[in-house]
């Protein structure tokens, strides 16, 4: 029975000691940048285990995809049609961008933005329900930089917040610490879309009750703030409600990107080209 009495205070002391160590780490981590290099190589170490954790999901997806041949055939047919449509649009695009650059010269705009993309694959998802961050398999080796915009096939998904040597961490637009300048495609009205910790919803804050916004309006990134490139789809207005006593509308947005499902992502980088240089490229 000796340890019933003698060891209890030592447990308390041990608990306090370890908690203080963790607490100091916590404060250093949240208030300073000192742990950043350590974080970088820790992130490298966690990647294999993250990919093991992702296995069941990939297996499930692959099995679903290849389970029946009919489904696969139909999918490939659909993709062929989609490709044809996109190619058709692309032909028009060449014409439009030529026209656009002519008009920009008329307006005395001196530079043109060229967007290039890099394909990345999802390798990890944060286990914390409050932090909507993911890990992707491109890092310094592919010249990924902090603040780079991340897309999936349907729309904007987030931005890179930490870059490691072969991977990087992406903050999703649905994270509750994330806000993104947008505009309504129909009339150019500017606003800010905020995440609130739900993968399937974003909210527009401080939209006046007399603002011209309707259900079904398409929202695109406005490019203000300098982080995101302009013109990428963000979402569609799903509902607009007036709340009595509230001077602002409650606007609910359904994100275009499949934020919690996409596996392959695009990293966009924009390079500014002077007009003289871009003429030769065309």
């Amino acid at each position: 029975m000796r340890n019933l009495f003698s060891s209890s205070p030592s447990y308390a002391r041990r608990m306090l000691f370890l908690s203080v160590i963790a607490g100091v780490l916590l404060l250093v981590d949240t208030t300073t940048q000192w742990l950043k290099p350590a974080r970088s190589w820790i992130a490298e170490l966690t990647i294999p285990i993250f990919s093991v954790a992702l296995l069941p999901r990939w297996v499930n997806e692959t099995v679903n995809e290849f389970a029946d041949a009919a489904n696969l055939k139909e999918k490939s047919k659909l993709q062929e049609v989609e490709l044809l449509i996109l190619k058709g649009r692309l032909q028009r695009m060449a014409d439009l961008s030529a026209e656009n650059s002519r008009l920009r010269t008329l307006l005395n705009a001196t530079e043109i933005l060229q967007h290039s993309v890099l394909v990345a694959e999802l390798t990890g998802v944060s286990p914390d329900p409050l932090s909507h961050t993911i890990i992707i398999n491109r890092g310094k080796d592919y010249k990924v930089f902090e603040g780079q915009a991340v897309l999936d096939a349907d729309g904007l998904m987030g931005q890179v917040i930490e870059v490691y040597s072969t991977s990087s961490k992406v903050l999703l637009i649905s994270d509750s610490s994330h806000a993104l300048p947008v505009q309504v495609l129909r009339n150019g009205m500017r606003s800010i879309a905020e995440g609130y910790g739900d993968f399937r919803h974003l909210a527009l804050r401080y939209v006046s009750t007399i603002a011209d916004i309707k259900v079904g309006d398409q929202l695109v990134s406005s490019g203000l703030g300098g982080r995101y490139p302009a013109g990428y789809p963000v979402g569609i207005v799903a509902s607009v409600d007036t709340i009595s006593g509230n001077p602002y509308l409650a606007v609910d947005i359904k994100p275009s990107a499949q934020i919690d499902q996409s596996r392959y992502l695009l990293l966009v980088s924009q390079t500014v080209e002077k007009f003289g240089a871009s003429k030769n490229a065309r």
Binding site: A22, I49, S126, T133
Partner: peptide, 24 residues
Amino acid sequence: GMLLDIFSGQMLGRYAITFSFCAY
């Protein structure tokens, strides 16, 4: 707890604190 902190990727040390308190 530290292991989980490393994987959750933010605020290093908070699971370590809560786990050691729960263990106590």
